[in-house]
């Protein structure tokens, strides 16, 4: 298992595309937190919150997690890349026990997703701090927002990495898997969350938001964080997603022939 971990780690760090994803995640997180104070400071934004409120400043910092979708892309690329480039042949010839290979890949995807999220989120928090320093009247954030945001980054990064590997196993076409995941995260999940909040709060985006433990009521934007699950419950449900998708990935890879 240690040898396989080393091999999968090398796959993660050797591919330049993965470093590109890390840079992308940093940019998205940084821009997210840097731009939000400007939007909130604009009285015409209609957001209902001003930077003189702690909730608003917390919301700025919580945006540091907005690069979460890069974690799922890393997971997808680690797995579907094996089929896209035919490296699955070498992988399974070297380690023919597919369950072990998949377990290792899931572990590395979790570590990779987590690292990307932690680095990007930390960069986002720093960018938010710099951006807010230009607004002298801004309220002070709560201490919890930093802890919650970094914790959400760790958990969501690891789980989305795992979910990505599972998607890459189920949908071997890399572009299709990535496009499908992004459409789900940015279109389907928010729509479900808006249309059926009782069910939507159990979906990934609702769970990640719940983990941030924000206290925001902005109905004009469809955001009422009091409707979300408690942070700990959200973490457990998100871990459940990870377990189900990991099981699916292992079950699928054990059955299918490798081309």
């Amino acid at each position: 298992m240690g040898a396989l971990l080393k091999s999968e780690w090398r796959k993660l760090i050797y591919a330049r595309a993965h470093w590109g994803l890390l840079i992308g995640a940093i940019l998205v997180a940084g821009l997210g937190t840097a731009v939000t104070p400007v939007i909130l400071d604009n009285p015409d934004s209609g957001f209902g919150l001003g930077l003189d409120q702690t909730q608003a400043v917390d919301a700025v910092y919580a945006n540091a997690i907005s690069g979460y979708f890069f974690a799922i892309i890393i997971g997808i690329m680690l797995m579907s890349g094996e089929f896209r480039h035919g490296t699955a042949v070498a992988t399974f010839l070297t380690a023919p026990k597919r369950g072990t290979v998949l377990a290792t890949k899931l572990a590395i995807a979790a570590i990779g997703g987590m690292l990307v999220m932690v680095i990007a989120t930390a960069a986002g928090l720093a960018a938010g701090w710099i951006a807010l320093s230009f607004f002298p009247d801004a309220a002070s954030p709560t201490n919890e927002v930093f802890i919650n945001t970094l914790l959400a980054a760790v958990v969501s990064g690891a789980i989305l990495g795992i979910v990505g590997v599972a998607l890459g196993t189920l949908i071997r076409n890399q572009m299709l898997a990535i496009t499908g995941a992004l459409i789900y995260l940015f279109v389907i999940d928010p729509i479900l969350l808006a249309l059926a909040p009782d069910a939507g709060k159990y979906l990934p985006v609702g769970l990640i938001t719940a983990m941030l433990a924000l206290d925001i009521d902005a109905p004009e934007f469809g955001i009422d964080t009091s409707a979300y699950l408690p942070p700990l419950t959200a973490t457990v449900v998100l871990l459940g997603y990870g377990a189900v998708f990991a099981g699916l990935a292992i079950a699928t890879s054990l059955r299918r022939d490798i081309e």
Partner: peptide, 27 residues
């Protein structure tokens, strides 16, 4: 040792990196 086709290696990795990935997995 098996050669099934000329695929099986990642195009964006160098030849050495590709082999180091395999070598690591096999100890």
């Amino acid at each position: 040792g098996t050669v099934l086709d000329s695929r099986g290696f990642h195009p964006a990795l160098t030849g050495k990196q590709n082999l180091r990935v395999v070598a690591a997995a096999a100890g």
